[in-house]
Design a protein around this nucleic acid. Sequence first.
DNA 1: AGATGCACCTGTATGC
DNA 2: TGCATACAGGTGCATC
Length: 274
Amino acid sequence: MPELPEVETLKRSLEPLLTGRRILSLEMKRPEVIKHPDAENFAQGVAGQRIQSLGRRGKYLLLYLENGSRLLIHLRMTGRLVCCEEAAEELPHTHLCFHLENGQVLRFSDVRRFGGLWLLAAGEEDQYSGMKKLGPEPLEGGCCPERLETALSRRKICIKQGILDQSVLAGLGNIYADEALFRAGIRPDRPCSSLSRAEWEALSQAIPEILSAAIRNRGTSFSDYLDGEGRKGENQNCLQAYQRGGQTCLRCGAVMEKTRIGGRGTCFCPCCQK
DNA sequence: AGATGCACCTGTATGC
DNA sequence: TGCATACAGGTGCATC
């Protein structure tokens, strides 16, 4: 599932392929993945536009077009965005094809169709996607202990749900929430109100460290994730908590536990995480 | 306002 | 073998 490190890796891999390139036309096999505006206007809005630059905000990928409009893409669970030659074989469940100059194509595929795209005209306020509700970027100073504590310490939820709240911090998903809590030595089911100052500090340090390491490893390809050239990442080989329930802890050797928190599979070490 | 549960989807794994 | 069921989890929404 693409989280911040995967979307950042996707952005970096697409940058050299898309920057300065013109979109000739849009082929829509499943227009329903377009969330705003309607498919017709979306297709007209991107046709003929040159892609000036790429960006990322939380788990959203942004393409800045030359007329000042912004294209937002969210991959949710199984979305993929791959740029390749027109002749290259399509991934299954390809819903959109952005035909580009020079015989290249940018394809959006998504098995479960949770992902979506939004086109915001120049100056148009984003009142459509969830991007407007995002909290600060954890890799741009948004993860200081004071802010985390202020935002969460009076909430009644447990800490894993707290750091998954995109309005508190942008970009963490299930994988890196488990990894960050393991690194910080904090049980995921602890109430937010129970964390000490030292624990808020440990967590605010662990989150950027975990995310940076995952970006260095070019993302986690547990099942579906591929970068913009269709390549898998390497970070799945470095996970210490996610999906390791029943296995031995890589730090202390105890048997890792698996539970459900907020409807999500959650793994932790009952010995290392207090 | 904040917390909770469900809907959205389909591929894969499991049980009978 | 075939079928039913559970599970994977990010987000938006309804409900309390």
